[in-house]
Amino acid sequence: MDSLGLYVLAAAVLFGVGVYGLIVSEHLMRKLFAINIMGNAIFILLVAASGPVEGAPDPVPQALVLTGIVIAVSATAFALALMVRLYQETGQATLSSRDEGDDG
């Protein structure tokens, strides 16, 4: 197996772990971890798939991934803040809700 295949395999495994975690976990923190793992799988794939085998690596995918990471970090921070807020308001950090039909 060449190195590209290895990267793709790793990405696929990570993505699978992420999807599993997202579906199975109840707790929002775990769901967030899961999404971040999925994100990392995609970043690995991007870097691996778009880098040429010989010669200088293409800077564009690197830049894309860097920006992607920045966005992922800020989105995660935002999600954490939202989760904390949810916990403060309802005392739980899951989405299993009883009162979906609250008065707006």
Partner: peptide, 12 residues
């Protein structure tokens, strides 16, 4: 709470 929950689901 309802909005927070809805927002969280939307975010994920």
């Amino acid at each position: 709470p309802a909005a927070l929950r809805a927002g969280m689901r939307y975010l994920l």
